[in-house]
Design a protein around this nucleic acid. Structure first.
Length: 614
DNA sequence: GTTAGGG
DNA sequence: CCCTAAC
């Protein structure tokens, strides 16, 4: 048996401390408690108090600081509710305190569960009921959305809604299973106390006023509290009740309050089945809370995050499995091809996905690098999972004429690459046509006149642009994200189909100067085709190679050479054959490259994998 | 500025 | 063809 002093030095900062500031109550209250074997505090009986009264008066100064324990405990449980309550972690110095905190946490966890599922299904962790939105937002969003919650009501609800849906998409994949298991393990650890008592405590305390609850708290824990959160008080008292149930001697103190509150609610059935929907909602809500926990809780609770990580990793693992092969392939290609890092456009699209999935929130920078690429693909899946889980469809709230309505979540972001020629398409079309044609036409007509398809291509171009404008209206209209980097006047180059003569010239040029000498070929062989850039030559050559590889092979098989695009001129097999030969020959310069590559591979194999890369 | 390569 | 990284 031990004697402990308890005082409210560290009070809940979220509430104004009227209790302490008013002089009517003692700022310091000492209470005799007994420390149970498991470290819990049990209020002493009256006999015990009498027995130690004298002792208390004399020795209280030197008493061990169990108050710290109490404080930390209170801090912790409080912290569960408000993660942004960011001090007091320094108190976690002794192992005893930590152990006690773990107990408290576990206890809290279990009570939490009970609260959510049975007693107070709609009000799990709110300081005030009406602040549920705000709280959840703060917790789930890691305070990102605090501004939002402070703004208008519609905004708030919108944020919450988006948050929940996004969280469901982003996190639910790993949580629902995970969460229950965590809970089970948690309650499994601490379920030495019959849950029945907790329930009764909750039920009985339900219709007490805050003041009464505070009294009950004081009676139960021997110290005052100014917390005005009913739920918190009830939980804490319930905890006290569960402890006191083990110790009959202290039952009397709380018993009074029990009796007071019992009248109305005693007949409430102990077990109330709540609809599955509620449970699911609870799960989701808890997920929203979790990141805050993970981040803010001291290392004592790493077991939680570890398990989370493990589970989530397991869930994410599936699409990850083929990562290794990709890496090796990539490395092999590394010597053969230029290693490109993702283009900006590519990055844009990826980040597009990301911001779409998480709406920019909660992109915890610490986590991203680990599974950066992996996340992108599988993240799409949870959307469906959750949809089936809690029938929460990915919707967002929109305000239409003042009232907010749910609309299907559709990305307003542009999915494709930014349209550089957005403006030209809309109003500069005619001038665009004129700018380029004159210079080119003069030279070309003689060359292309024989083909006679020049006009055709121009008409086709018109159709194409019209199509594109329609496409813009259809899917890009909501994306005003015109890339500022792109010049407004930039227009798509006038499309000119490659003529046979051009192709021949190109092939000749390649044969003469070698593939890759595009600027040279352009200068020497295409001097008269001012509109063909070296890039064009390169592209065309690439296409020719493709054509030669596919078309020739299919022709040999007797298969119809795959409905050739009527817009492209048919390339005579003779030319294709030449292309193929050149393609096989030219890289003979690349033969050297291949040899190098091969050598590199073999040396790599000798050296042992992986050492040379990165 | 050229070239390679993805889109 | 466009775009952009790599050269």
């Amino acid at each position: 048996m031990e004697v402990g002093g308890s005082q409210d030095a560290l009070e809940n900062t979220n509430d104004d401390n009227n209790f302490n500031k008013n002089g009517n109550s003692d700022p310091v209250v000492y209470q005799l408690v007994r420390v149970e074997g498991d470290g819990t505090l049990v209020p002493a009986t009256e006999d015990e108090v009498l027995q130690f009264e004298d002792f208390l008066h004399d020795e209280k100064v030197d008493l061990p600081s169990i108050d710290d324990v109490a404080h930390v405990e209170e801090y912790f449980t409080n912290d569960c509710i408000k993660p942004d309550f960011g001090e007091g972690t320094s108190k976690l110095d002794t192992a005893d305190v930590q152990g006690l905190m773990v107990d408290a946490a576990l206890e809290e966890g279990r009570l939490h569960t009970l609260d959510d599922s049975i007693v107070l299904p709609s009000n799990c962790s709110a300081v005030h009921d009406q602040e549920l939105d705000k709280l959840d937002t703060e917790q789930g969003g890691n305070n990102i959305a605090q501004q939002d919650s402070a703004s208008t009501e519609t905004t708030k609800s919108t944020v919450l809604n988006e948050l929940s849906s996004d969280k469901e998409k982003a996190d639910a994949c790993s949580k629902p299973v995970n969460d229950t298991s965590t809970r089970q393990s948690v309650s499994g650890v601490t379920s030495s106390v019959p849950e029945f008592s907790i329930l009764r405590g909750e039920v009985c305390l339900d219709n007490l006023t805050i003041r009464e609850l505070q009294e009950a708290f004081r009676a139960t824990f021997g110290r005052q509290t100014t917390v005005k959160d009913k739920l918190w008080l009830k939980r804490r008292i319930a905890m006290g009740l569960t402890n006191s149930c083990d110790v009959p001697s202290s039952g009397c103190i709380v018993k009074d309050y029990k009796v007071i509150g019992m009248g109305a609610k005693q007949e409430i059935p102990v077990v109330q089945r709540i609809p599955k929907m509620e449970l699911d909602a609870t799960l989701v809500r808890d997920q929203v809370m979790d990141p805050g926990h993970e981040r803010d809780l001291p290392s004592t609770f790493s077991y939680h995050s570890e398990e989370q990580q493990r589970l989530s990793k397991r869930l994410k693992r599936v699409p990850t499995d083929n990562d290794e092969p990709q890496v090796t392939i990539f490395s092999e290609q590394g010597t053969a091809k230029r290693i490109r890092k993702p283009t900006k456009r590519y990055i844009e699209e990826l980040s597009d996905v990301e911001t779409h999935e998480s709406t920019g929130r909660l992109s915890s920078p610490g986590k991203r690098p680990v599974c950066d690429e992996v996340l992108l693909r599988p993240r799409v899946a949870p959307l469906h999972e959750v949809g089936s889980l809690s029938t929460t469809y990915p919707t967002r709230k929109d305000t239409l004429g003042g009232c907010s309505v749910h609309v299907p979540y559709v990305s307003r972001m542009r999915r494709g690459r930014p349209r550089s020629n957005f403006i030209p398409f809309l109003d500069l079309e005619p001038s665009v046509e004129c700018t380029e044609v004159p210079a080119a036409d003069g030279v070309n007509l003689e060359k292309e006149g024989d083909q006679g398809n020049h006009k055709n291509t121009e008409r086709k171009e018109h159709v194409e642009t019209n199509k594109e404008v329609q496409g813009l209206q259809a899917k890009d209209f909501f994306s005003p994200d015109v890339n500022p980097k792109l010049k407004l006047g930039a227009k798509r180059k006038h499309h000119r189909a490659w003529t046979l003569s051009e192709v021949v010239k190109l092939v000749d040029g390649v044969a003469r100067y070698g593939a890759g000498k595009w600027s040279e070929i352009r200068r020497l062989a295409f001097s008269s085709y001012s509109y063909r850039t070296s890039v064009d030559l390169k592209d065309k050559w690439r296409n020719l190679i493709r054509a030669s590889q596919t078309q020739l092979s299919t022709e040999n098989d007797g298969v119809c050479p795959r409905k050739s695009n009527p817009s492209t001129i048919p390339i005579p097999p003779s030319i294709l054959l030449r292309v193929k030969e050149l393609a096989e020959m030219q890289p003979q310069a690349g033969d050297l490259r291949a040899a190098i590559k091969f050598a590199g591979q073999s040396t790599m194999a000798v050296q042992g994998k992986g050492s040379g890369f990165l």
